[in-house]
Every structure is written in C-alpha cells, then in structure tokens.
C-alpha cells in the first residue's frame, strides 16, 4: 500500500498466511471502516482467528501487507499497541493470580486503564475479583479475558469468539457494554462469533471468510436488503424445474410453488422475474443465520 492511512484501523493488501503446507489466509485485501462494529464470519478454519491475530501483531503475514492504524503489524510500537484491545477465544491468563491481582497487573501496563469501567464491568458481568484464576470455569475465564481487553479504552477492539461460554443474560450485558464503548469511545469493534443471533444485534458491517479467502466485505444493511427468500407461485402452467437466473443462490423447485434464496440489489428484480415466469413472487428478508450458508458458499459458486 502506497499511502498508509492512520484513520483506517486495519487494512490488508494481498495478505496471505501459511502454516507449513496449510494456507490459513489467501490473498486477502480489505480495509476495515472506523467506528463500526464489524462481524467477522466464517466456518471453523476459515481464517478468522488468523486474521485477528495478524491485526494485533501476534502473528505476522507470510506475504502481502497488513497495516494496523496505518503501520505494518511487525512494527507496531507501544503507544499503538496500547490502542489495541484483544480478547482471545481462550484467554491465556496468569493462573496463580486472583482476578483482582490480574486486573492490577494488566492495568500497570496501560496509562489509560479505567478503574470505574472496570468495577462496572465486574458487576454487570458478575465476576468475583477475589476468585483465583485457576478455579474459574470456562465462562468466567472468558469474562476475565473481556475485562482485560477493554478497560484501557482501546481504539480497535478485536474479539475472537468472546461469548461462546457465556449464558444469554451475560451475553446481552456484554453486547450492551460493547455498544457503550462504541458510543463513548467511538472505537472500532471486530467480533468473530458463531452465535449469529447475538452478533446480529450490534454489527453494522460484515466481513466473511471462506477457506482463507475474503468472500464478503459489506455494510450489514446492504446485505439484509439484497438477500431474500422468494416464494414463487405459478399463475399459469408449471414452473421451470430449475430457475437459471444468476441471482438465484439456492432453490427448492416445485411445479406450482418454489422457494428460492436470492441475492439482488435490483428493486425491480422480483417484478421482472414474476412477469418472465408467469408467477407471483412474495419476498421475505433473511436474517444472519439464514444468510450465513449463502455467504460462505459464494466462493465455490463463483469459481
């Protein structure tokens, strides 16, 4: 990249990462928009954790460029690293400490550590600071990982499956806490999760990876407005056994009634389709759960 843009929280150009013979990321180019909540989606092994680890400088690219705050990730300096908040899938914690000691330990590295935010999060996430890390359940460890990642007001918050072990009440409070950070700090949040019902509540941008390749990088609104399920009812004669339109992503054909999953941003597409096939089309939007298989299947369909 020729012009490093410090207002872009993370950008990649032709980024690839291999572990031996295994390719985790392949030729990924993207720029994450600032001040957004970005949902990082993909199946297991799609490369989500690798991308997050590269953004935080834990892992370096095999080839291509990766810039965080406009700086190549290998050269991130201390002030830039303190603007990062990282919550890993399985928090690596100092097992012999109490939660209190661990918070104090981490706070000592960050001049901007916010004690009042810390105590509010201890309360809302229901964490007992007197407990020893080694005695915590997986869910409690996850909560401590979150506390350690956000109390210094990061400008870029990278969350890798932060909710997998949390109950629905705590998950809702975590989402509220993230939205509060967004409102107060204007930070950028990248969140990878398989709990799509939850991420759907806060994401406004979607990045999807499939087998190491970038398959989607769009505003969530635009995705919601382009994906739909069409219920097609024949008005005159039998419907075709297969609809050839390229925007039809999947279909359950039938003579009188067919159900299609489509992607088109053309507002008149349904009306034209109805006229062509002498049919009536009812359109229903898809939620993220329903979109997910279509998003992660695009690569195969295209190649």
């Amino acid at each position: 990249m020729n012009t490093p843009d410090t207002s872009t929280p993370f950008a990649a150009q032709s980024l690839s990462k291999s572990y031996g013979a295994h390719t985790a990321l392949s030729d990924v180019s993207l720029a994450l928009p600032a001040g957004r909540v970005i949902g990082l989606l993909g199946r297991n092994g799609a490369g989500k954790s690798t991308l997050l680890n590269i953004a935080s400088g834990f892992t370096l690219p095999s080839s291509g460029d990766a810039l965080t705050f406009g700086t190549p990730v290998a050269r991130l300096d201390t002030p830039q690293l303190t603007r990062l908040g990282v919550v890993q899938q399985e928090a690596r914690l100092l097992e012999w400490m109490t939660v209190r000691q661990h918070l104090d330990f981490n706070a000592s590295f960050y001049p901007g550590w916010d004690r009042s935010l810390e105590s509010r999060l201890l309360e809302s996430l229901e964490v007992d600071p007197k407990r020893k890390i080694v005695q915590l359940s997986p869910g409690e460890r996850q909560k401590v990982g979150i506390l350690l990642g956000v109390c210094h007001h990061p400008a870029l918050l990278l969350l890798d499956e932060p909710m997998s072990a949390l109950d629905p009440i705590i998950r809702a409070r975590l989402l509220d806490a993230l939205l509060e950070r967004l409102r107060d700090d204007g930070c950028t949040v990248v969140i990878s999760s398989h709990i799509l019902n939850d991420v759907e509540k806060i994401v406004d941008w979607v990045v999807a990876l499939d087998a190491g390749q970038l398959v989607e990088n769009s505003p969530f609104d635009a995705l919601q407005e382009s994906f739909a399920e069409w219920t097609v009812t024949s008005l005159n004669g039998a419907l075709p056994a297969r609809f050839p339109e390229p925007f039809v992503l999947s279909q359950q054909p039938g003579e009188r009634l067919a159900r299609l999953r489509v992607r088109t941003s053309d507002a008149d597409a349904a009306a034209r389709f109805a006229a062509t096939h002498h049919a009536q089309v009812q359109s229903r939007p898809l939620n993220l759960d329903e979109m997910f298989p279509l998003l992660t299947r695009q690569q195969k369909a295209r190649s």
Partner: peptide, 17 residues
C-alpha cells in the same frame, strides 16, 4: 441518537441512518 441507541441497545450508526 445517543439516547435512542442506548434505549434500543442498537448501534448508534443504525439510529443516525
């Protein structure tokens, strides 16, 4: 925008749009 986004637990971008 701020009040409504907090009340609905929504991203402020959504409300301002």
């Amino acid at each position: 925008t701020r009040t409504l986004s907090a009340e609905l637990a929504l991203n402020p971008m959504t409300v301002s749009k």
